[in-house]
Simulated scan of single mutants.
Amino acid sequence: MEKYALITGASGGIGSAIAEKMVKEGYGVILHYYQNEAAVNKLASYLRSYTDNIMVVQGDLSSKEGVDHFLSTLVVPVDLLIYNGGQSLSALMMDVTDERIEEMVYLSVTALYRIAKFVLPKMIQKRTGNIIVISSIWGLEGASYEVLYSTVKGAQNTFVKALAKEVALSKIRVNGIAPGAILTNMLSDYTQEDLEMMEQEIPMGRIGKPSEIADAVAYLASDQSSYITGQILSVDGGWHT
């Protein structure tokens, strides 16, 4: 029977790398996107060279209505939920609007909770399943000028730890990955000088690749990590240890 991985934010750099990796690991994939339809369709077309079990679903996960619509489109049981994506925000805490706070909390916390709640009953029934949350080092360390982003990512990490304890006896594992600096569009606003300074701060002397996050996801989804749950794996080149 085909196993399906649901990957939110699949049109982005990390999401698309995860999707490719999971297809190569034998999963069918459900590719979620919000606005970048061209990118997700290009990804889906490429992945169909490996398997026909590719689905594309659209959804605004920053609102109740958007999540309602998204959940209504999920027509196959999800064996592996990879909650990836979200929006970074660099601003002084006092400059963030109440509307922005509500959007980011819904996107990173409420939507994660609701989607996990939706897929868990089938996992519990089958007594197998995996949930992996792509968090951030700022959810562990906190970052000045990114208080809201740090807050919601910290909430994701605690969600992982709490849910892992609740569903462990049902043979379901829940883990998180906290990437450091990764070469994606999230770094597009940085100058070359900024990137070089960042690399100097990282003990391994370089910025990470999306494929390295995908490799970590594949490990946590595999039987090789069968006794690992409730953990946040930092993939950051030693930047914050």
Rank of each mutant, 00 (worst) to 15 (best):
M123S: 04
Q125V: 00
Q125W: 07
K126Y: 06
K126I: 07
K126L: 07
R127S: 03
T128R: 14
G129N: 12
N130C: 11
I131W: 01
I132Y: 08
I132G: 00
I132E: 06
I134R: 14
I134D: 13
S135M: 10
S136N: 03
S136F: 07
S136E: 11
S136C: 03
I137R: 08
W138K: 00
G139C: 11
G139R: 11
G139P: 13
G139A: 03
L140P: 06
L140G: 11
E141T: 14
G142D: 02
G142A: 01
A143T: 09
E146C: 06
V147C: 06
V147L: 09
L148C: 04
L148D: 07
Y149C: 01
S150Y: 01
S150T: 09
T151K: 00
T151M: 05
K153S: 03
K153H: 07
A155L: 06
Q156D: 07
N157R: 07
T158D: 09
F159I: 11
V160H: 02
K161A: 02
A162N: 10
A162Q: 13
L163Y: 12
A164K: 13
A164D: 09
K165S: 15
K165W: 09
E166P: 00
E166T: 10
V167E: 12
V167A: 12
A168Y: 02
A168G: 09
A168S: 15
L169I: 11
L169D: 15
S170Q: 15
I172E: 08
I172H: 11
G176Y: 06
G176L: 06
G176H: 10
G176A: 15
G176Q: 13
I177L: 07
A178S: 15
A178M: 05
P179M: 14
G180D: 10
